[in-house]
Nucleic acid binder design. Structure first.
Length: 853
RNA sequence: GCCCGCUUGGCGGAAUUGGUAGACGCAUCGGACUUAAAAUCCGAACUCCCGAAAGGGAGGUGCCGGUUCGAGUCCGGCAGCGGGCACCA
């Protein structure tokens, strides 16, 4: 009789719910374990199997930790603000709120059907005013602490949509939806001062020892600390000095020009009296900020006609350019160019006929003949042509020149970060309103706390381009809280990363009147295990780390880092299919015909594309309902974990899920078929066991030890393999004698308990079939008997000169002499030695004997 | 361009961290059961060489070299694939 998952799985889900199993409460006496999934966006297509890998991994860890006695917090919620809801509203006239809550209902049911043990009482949706009102308060506190500020910054502006676009939304310099040429525009935007913590965010990465190395590295690169100097170049004929930033102050004697960003204040000032410069700057700004544009853009400059004095060579002046490759956002927005030792400067110098003065001599080169060709020399070497720096290496020269500049008051050492402040303004409806009011008389006035939350109006239209909040007839018109005169509400909303930067704190006390209760947060935080996709390696994780610091500074909590452990799971992939016209096809629309050929429903040939991450756009998705309906949640769960290590990508195949389904049924038969012959639960294992029974007993204990270790290290695939080894062996135990039957029962119970976290429904049913009245999920995790983990005899490999010649069975931990003589007695060995004595014999206990002849 | 990671049978992957390479599974092939199919069970399977066979020998973890009694694992070089960042001064 096959395993009836259709009735069994819902039965246990109901039992767990009735037992309140996943409800968690504060309990200072018990050790806590906070496991967190990256909460999903409630998308219109719901969940497919690809979404479930990470959730399943977290569920295994939490069920395992619970069996080990931890007070486990495992919440789930919805990252519910965002653009797709507005697009759906435009496309199908559904209000974003209704669309979002419908999707939440669908996805919640899907997660419940997978048997994931969330504490649903703690569910939060970020689009609910009870959630976002707290972040409006946080924003006001940030504002007061100087951590939030309004500033004009350069953004990608879509002139048709009338909105700011994120860099990702600019494709080949055009708006992703309108196709309009994107402009760079200076716009007043709200920013969060993440750069106030640059040093700390970087330094603390060292403490995140349970994060993947890769993610830590990506964060380091993103923060991008560089050491260098700020140097002042006096402007000839003007009282002021130009401040530049450089990481190569050692090449200062090779300077042949200075250059400003087109957005540098000095450039703007000069442009007022120079029409051609104005035109040049406008041209630079028309160019998008996207990668593709920058890559193909030629280096261009405009000579301002102004000269700057070299700070270390009296009387020497350099031309000052405005150049398109200088970024205002990095350093001081101005550089000095040393063409000999920087490729961009070299390209620029060649184009404008500027001097190329080498000042770093490669090892072994002749200073009299060394010249720079088409490639700048950027490696280490000996400084020359540089007065007091001559003869030094690059590192020493940097130190020495900075020392001299400081003496002269012409510069100082400086650290610069790549990290920029976080612009959080979005011209969108479906987001959290930014709680400020613009008053002509009073300026920017924070919304008083008593007026929070500032909620979104319901009656909005999406007919016109631009921000619906801005179009709304009444919403933005308010009285100034300070002076009472008519004023205008801020119509921008927060970037949705704002909501996801603190949701893990809200989960600790999700119904609290304040953002969260200190007692709860102090108990539960930090998150012990965070699991999600690597695509959030930088932005979300960095923003959350920043929020933790900012909230600590504002007195909300006292926490160094939000996530103690991080695991990034791989993607679930599937082959892609296209018909002859290039249309994507769903897997179920495609039939295999012959070895390598596939056809669509009408029998026309189908092109099989490469494996790609499951995505709606390529239709290579496998629906959750279809899989769970046919095979059950447990089979899907085991499949997601049994083949590949979870950090790696996984291919979903029909054959693979079939294979797991066969195993599920094999297990079912293994337990239910001999059940009658098994001794009752609790039967002790006799001492006098047959050799086979003894072997099976030891294997069971060894499996406990291995699986425990594998779960601890996220090696689910290995753990599953170990359990399969055990169940394979149990199939061979005859179960006839009393000892064998007792061992068989013991082995089956161990397999069931070890599978509990992975296939909770099946394991629960097997536990019942084995005659237990308790809920398996409430049983403790089994412990291996150390005396039984080790085998009594070991197979020792025997090598001659490093080549395997045979094996010998030896008692465990036998002394080296005995192992050596057993090895030397092996016919294969005597044959090789031909009567000679070996030169050397290396014995590795319980492992290997190598005879060197 | 810079930084990082990976490369093991037809496929996904194991290998106690320097000690019997290919655990566990998928797919394949052969057989049993069956009127038949499904399901299930049993078995084979890295390559080459010697041998009728039983067996034996040699090679093999992307490529070349090194260290070591012993290398998938460590070191140097190369290639391929993947990821992150990128006019960042």
């Amino acid at each position: 009789m096959p395993y009836e998952h259709r009735s069994i799985e819902p039965k246990w889900q109901a039992r767990w719910r009735a037992a309140g199993l996943h409800r968690t409460t504060y309990d200072a006496k018990r050790p806590k374990f906070y496991a967190l999934d990256m909460f999903p966006y409630p998308s219109g297509s719901g969940l497919h199997v690809g979404h479930c890998e990470g959730y399943t991994a977290t569920d295994i860890i939490t069920r395992w930790k619970r069996m080990q006695g931890f007070n486990v917090l495992h919440p789930m919620g919805w990252d519910a603000f965002g653009l797709p809801a507005e697009n759906a509203a435009i496309a199908s006239k559904i209000h974003p709120r209704i669309w979002t809550y419908d999707n939440i209902a669908t996805m919640r049911a899907q997660l419940q059907r997978m048997g994931i043990g969330y504490d649903w009482r703690r569910e939060v949706a970020t689009c609910h005013p009870e959630y976002y009102k707290h972040e409006q308060k946080m924003f006001l506190d940030f504002l007061e602490a100087g951590l939030a500020y309004r500033r004009e910054s350069w953004v990608n502006w879509d002139p048709v949509e009338n909105t700011v676009l994120a860099n990702e939304q600019v494709i080949d310099g055009r708006g992703w939806r309108s196709g309009a040429l994107v402009e760079k525009r200076l716009l007043a935007q709200w920013n969060l001062r993440i750069t106030a913590y640059s040093d700390d965010l970087l330094a603390a990465i060292k403490t995140l020892d349970r994060w993947p190395e890769r993610v830590r590295l990506m964060q380091e690169n993103w923060i991008g600390r560089s050491e260098g100097a700020r140097v002042l170049f006096p402007l000839v004929g003007r009282g002021e000095k130009l401040e530049i930033y450089t990481t190569r102050p050692d090449t200062l004697f090779g300077a042949s020009f200075c250059a400003l960003s087109p957005n540098h204040p000095l450039a703007a000032e000069l442009a007022e009296k120079d029409a051609r410069l104005r035109e040049f700057i406008a041209e630079c700004n028309r160019m998008g900020t996207s990668e593709a544009v920058l890559e193909t853009a030629e280096k261009k400059g405009y000579d301002t006609g102004i000269a700057v004095e070299h700070p270390l060579i009296p009387g020497k002046t350099l031309p000052l350019f405005v150049a398109n490759f200088i970024l205002m956002e990095y350093g001081t927005g101005a550089i000095f160019g040393c063409p000999g030792h920087d490729q961009r400067d070299l390209d620029f110098a060649r184009k404008y006929g500027l001097a190329v003065i080498p000042v770093v001599l490669p090892p072994g080169a002749d200073p009299k003949t060394f010249q720079i060709g088409d490639t700048a020399y950027v490696e280490d070497g000996t400084i020359f042509n540089s007065q007091f720096l001559d003869g030094l290496d690059v590192a020493s020269a940097k130190g020495k020149v900075i020392e001299r500049l400081e003496q002269l008051g012409a510069g100082k050492s400086a650290v610069t970060f790549r990290l920029r402040d976080w612009g959080v303004s979005r011209q969108r409806y479906w987001g959290c309103p930014i709680p400020v009011i613009h008053c002509e008389g009073c300026g920017i006035v924070p919304v008083p706390e008593k007026d929070l939350p500032v909620t979104l109006p319901e009656d909005v239209s999406f007919d016109k381009p631009g921000n619906p909040l801005d179009h709304h007839p009444t919403w933005k018109h308010v009285a100034c809280p300070a002076c009472g005169k008519p004023a205008r509400r801020e119509t921008d909303t927060f970037d949705t990363f704002f909501e996801s930067s603190w949701y893990f704190l809200r989960f600790c006390s999700p119904r609290a009147a304040t953002a969260f209760e200190r007692r709860e947060v102090d108990y539960w935080m930090p998150v012990d295990q965070y699991i999600g996709g690597v695509e959030h390696a930088v932005l979300h994780l960095l923003y959350s780390r920043f929020f933790t610091r900012a909230l600590t500074e504002c007195g909300y909590l006292d926490l160094a880092e939000p996530f103690a452990g991080l695991f990034t799971q791989g993607m679930v992939c599937h082959a892609t299919y296209q018909d002859q016209d290039g249309n994507w096809l769903f897997p179920e629309e495609v039939t295999r015909k012959g070895e390598e050929s596939y056809v669509d429903a009408k029998g026309r040939p189908v092109t099989v594309g490469r494996l790609e991450k499951m995505s709606k756009s390529r239709k290579n998705v496998v629906g959750l309902e279809a899989v769970v309906g046919e095979y059950g949640a447990d089979t899907a769960r085991l499949y997601l974990l049994s083949d590949s290590p979870p950090e790696r990508d996984l291919e979903w195949t029909d054959a693979g899920i079939d294979g797991v389904w066969r195993y599920v049924n094999r297990l079912w038969r293994l337990v239910t078929e001999p059940a009658a012959a098994l001794p009752p639960a609790g039967t002790a294992i006799p001492n006098d066991l047959s050799a086979e029974a003894e072997k099976a007993l030891r294997l069971a204990h060894r499996t406990i030890a291995h699986v425990t270790d594998d779960l601890d290290k996220f090696r689910f695939n290995r753990g599953v393999a170990r359990i399969r080894e055990l169940t394979n062996a149990l199939e061979e135990v005859p179960g006839t004698g009393a000892g064998e039957a007792a061992v068989l029962r013991f082995g089956l119970e161990i397999a069931t308990r070890l599978l509990g976290p992975m296939m909770p429904h099946l394991a629960e049913e097997l536990w019942l079939q084995l005659g237990h009245k308790t809920l398996l999920v409430e049983e403790p995790w089994p412990k291996a008997d150390p005396a039984l983990v080790a085998e009594e005899t070991v197979t020792v490999a025997v090598q001659v000169n490093g080549k395997l010649r045979g094996t010998v069975e030896l008692p465990r931990d036998v002394d080296s002499g005995a192992a050596e003589s057993a090895a030397l007695a092996l016919p294969a060995v005597t044959r090789f030695l031909e009567g000679r004595r070996p030169r050397k014999v290396i014995v590795v206990p319980n492992r290997i004997v190598n005879v060197v002849g």
